[in-house]
Design a protein around this nucleic acid. Structure first.
Lengths: 338, 338
DNA sequence: TCGATTCGTCGAAGCGCTTCGACGATGCGG
DNA sequence: CCGCATCGTCGAAGCGCTTCGACGAATCGA
């Protein structure tokens, strides 16, 4: 592997000049620059990342902490990861992948040993223990999610409260008054994953505002869980006309179940789902849905990290507007039925 | 951030002694070691990764190149990634995540700039362009997959040929003679992803060996693709009694379709799936399946990388035995029906 | 009892880069 | 026409660690 010295010698300049050609931090004449670049190309020179990190205290690496346990939401997580890696590359950064289950220790390890310039975390819990740890790090971090006390830490996410509101408003606008919420699995609530809470709160508030009759229920994964959940919802709110589904996994079995029990979508029951677009359109009925904009959120998280790194101002809480896309799972209820 | 010098001063020893305590490469007396460790703990010292990499030419980082485009097989990819990260951590390594679509350039970038000690790639194609590039790197690499010419590069994967054989043998053993293969999507074949080829070849060979009547077909994703695929298979091989499904995405819609058209599993048609265990048991019928042992493969890949790194012998082609698990989707055909 | 080992520690060199201060050569305004 | 700023380049220091050779002290076999 050639070093910067080899390049310097080949180009007949000093190593520092090569460095300045590379970084552009000082003016270099066009001829010199050309000669240096030729030497770089010819020798196939690539600066040594470790040496660079040591000398400049910048690694050009971002940590991405993902919940890799294959429990829920696999496709969404994947989309976030993809977006983050892609965005990071566009800023000339790489991504170090950490699993959530290394917990606080993992964060401290990579931060203290200066392996990364910034951290991006997903799947935050309401009172996430990692937050205080993050505050102690010298590297900035960006959260995908919105834990309870996030003062001083940048957060990016879909506005799940607004999403709930949008879903209910849409349904109410179509004449629906009796609406059930099929929520995430109890495990998600138990962990107090922040989006679940925020969605539920938004749901209840809007329900009250609009004077709707609603009932909410978490939903265990699997066909059995869906059956149980729907049974309870039906029992507590007979003759409901619409369902909001905030649970990707439940979607498919739910539709199967409705079909098996002779309830047609949207003729007998309307549905608004909160899920990625491609999930919504891969169902037997194309679902009216509110997208989880993983790509935007991931990209925005990286962008925020970059701003933080070069000391620019950032919005510390950035909640993306939900957007509801009408497809084929909601119908207008005639007034007489209300 | 304290440095090794701070620790040395605090413990009243030289920096090199601290280093030897850390690495264990030279004997250090118990007292000195204790004093040094106390100092490390008290100061919260963490060695600087870049400095370490520079001095030792080891980064303790592995590159994982994953197909992050959300096309197919998301859960399996996720499982591989999880296994790789977890295994890497157990060897005190971290994982740098690269996307496949950076291609050769990405590999060269991280390798030449000495960001990683070794590379692990997944989703290899038959004549993958990255292979020659890998050969030129000074870092070793491990492939998850088995491209055509892999001389000198370690490969780890499920033995898909044997898997096909196991599936057919199982079905033949239950009296099935007319069997269809629902293959991966045409896109997968087009890319010549290695597992698809290997499975198909094994399927055809075994079919001939056992004197079976078989027909094979790729299967486009989505309900429509499945419908078309099944129609063609039915047309080419009427009265088939069993299906081998090597296509995770197709599984669900296929079962839906069979049910909708009144073909019961396993009464009217038997199924053997090649898919992760949890997919097999999350279907309406628990499927007899051959597991894709993502965890084992991922772990083995890391292990192989580690052996390569410290110069131990490795098996350059390691194909894991498939194991078929009987569940509820295959039934014995009485001889009279044959 | 003595030379040869082994043990435990130190000092210094060096890994490959960035960055700061310095300095001659230009270009400019007055 | 001179002083000053700017341009383009260089040399050297230093980032924090590992590792090699050296060396006194303790240990050992004969």
């Amino acid at each position: 592997m050639p070093t910067i010295n080899d390049v310097a010698r080949a180009a007949g300049v000093s190593p520092s000049t090569v460095s300045y050609v590379l970084s552009g931090r000082r003016p270099i004449s066009a001829e010199t620059r050309a000669r240096v670049q030729a030497a770089i190309a010819e020798l196939g020179f690539h600066p040594h990342a470790g040496a660079r990190a040591l000398a400049s205290s910048k690694t050009n690496v971002l940590a991405l902490v993902a919940p890799l346990r294959v429990d829920v939401n696999v496709p969404v997580i994947m989309q976030f990861a993809t977006a983050v890696v892609t965005a990071a590359r566009s800023y000339n950064h790489d991504v170090l992948l950490l699993t959530k289950d290394e917990g606080t220790a993992g964060l401290e390890r990579v931060a203290h040993s200066t392996m990364v310039d910034a951290l991006i975390l997903m799947d935050l819990e309401r009172d996430d223990l990692r937050i205080p740890a993050l505050r102690r790090l010298k590297q900035p971090s960006v959260l995908i999610g919105l834990p309870a006390d996030h003062t001083g830490i940048a957060c990016v996410d879909l506005d799940f409260g607004a999403a709930a509101k949008a879903a209910l408003t849409h349904l109410a606008g179509h004449g629906h008054q009796r609406i059930g919420l099929v929520g995430p699995s109890p495990a998600v609530y138990r962990r107090q994953t922040t989006y679940a809470d925020r969605f539920l709160t938004g749901f209840l508030e809007t329900s009250a505002e609009l004077g709707l009759r609603t009932v909410t229920h978490p939903c265990e994964p699997g066909g059995e869980g869906v059956r149980a959940c729907l049974a309870e919802i039906d029992a507590e709110l007979p003759a409901l006309t619409a369902l909001v589904v905030h649970n990707e996994e439940a979607l498919r079995p739910l539709l199967d179940l409705l079909q098996a029990t002779g309830r047609r979508v949207p003729e007998d029951i309307s549905i608004v789902a909160i899920c990625p677009r491609d999930v919504a359109v891969s169902m037997p009925v194309n679902l009216t849905s509110i997208d989880i904009p993983a790509h935007e959120v991931g990209t925005l998280a990286v962008e925020t990290a970059m701003r933080l790194l070069d000391g620019r101002r950032v919005e510390y809480t950035r909640l993306l507007e939900p957007s509801l896309v009408e497809r084929d799972s909601c119908r207008e209820i005639s007034t007489s039925h209300r």
